[in-house]
């Protein structure tokens, strides 16, 4: 089990390095979206319109933060259960989404689509929202502001800690436990 400090978005060469069980510390740009934003993105695509950001090669963190106190970047900011996004995920992977950060199991359909598209799934520690907020250095709502905590955000992270759960070969750490 190796440890990597990587720049986000993670390039294809680095993605190939990652194996289930490795520790990753991400620095760079990450997009944040959860249930309601995913539903709306898929509806947007169904209408033949473009997504609010270019998803190709990008990372989505499944998260809905608590409000930031005055002078702070963000509130508590831990991962939400990824499985709820499974219904929407293969379509986003086909559009070039490469990295997902969340917690919990993924469906068979997501496994297959990840393998086909060369994507990885990272777990952040669920319920460690205060700790993880310290790794977020900037946060901006870029779409769907009306969704409140479920709006799409672009965040900057520094040494954001995660563990590789599903790698590009389809190995799943949860299935080995």
């Amino acid at each position: 089990m190796n440890e990597y400090h990587l720049t986000s978005p993670i390039n294809d060469e680095d993605l190939r390095l990652l194996k289930a069980g490795d520790s990753v510390y991400l620095t760079g740009t990450v997009y944040v979206a959860r249930d309601a934003a995913h539903k709306r993105m898929i509806e947007t695509l169904a209408r033949g319109e473009a997504l609010p950001f270019d998803i190709k090669g990008q990372t989505i963190y499944y998260m809905g933060p608590s409000p930031a106190r005055e002078g702070r970047v963000i509130g508590s900011a831990g991962p939400t259960t990824a499985g709820r996004m499974d219904k929407y995920t293969p379509q986003l992977l086909d559009l070039g989404l490469k990295v997902m950060i969340g917690k919990g199991r993924r469906s068979d359909a997501v496994h297959e689509s990840m393998k086909k598209n060369g994507a990885v799934y990272l777990a952040a520690i669920g319920g460690a929202g205060a700790l993880l907020s310290k790794a977020i250095t900037a946060s901006e709502v870029i779409a769907y502001d009306d969704l409140g905590t479920e709006a799409i955000r672009r965040i900057e992270v520094k040494d954001f800690p995660a563990i590789v759960v599903i790698d590009i070969t389809g190995r799943d750490l949860y299935q080995e436990v």
Binding site: M63, G64, P65, S66, S76, G78, T80, G129, A130, L131
Partner: peptide, 16 residues
């Protein structure tokens, strides 16, 4: 560490 930060820096333990 998360619990310590939540208590000392006034951040909810979990965002949910």
């Amino acid at each position: 560490e998360n619990l310590r930060i939540a208590g000392e820096e006034d951040i909810p333990i979990c965002q949910d």
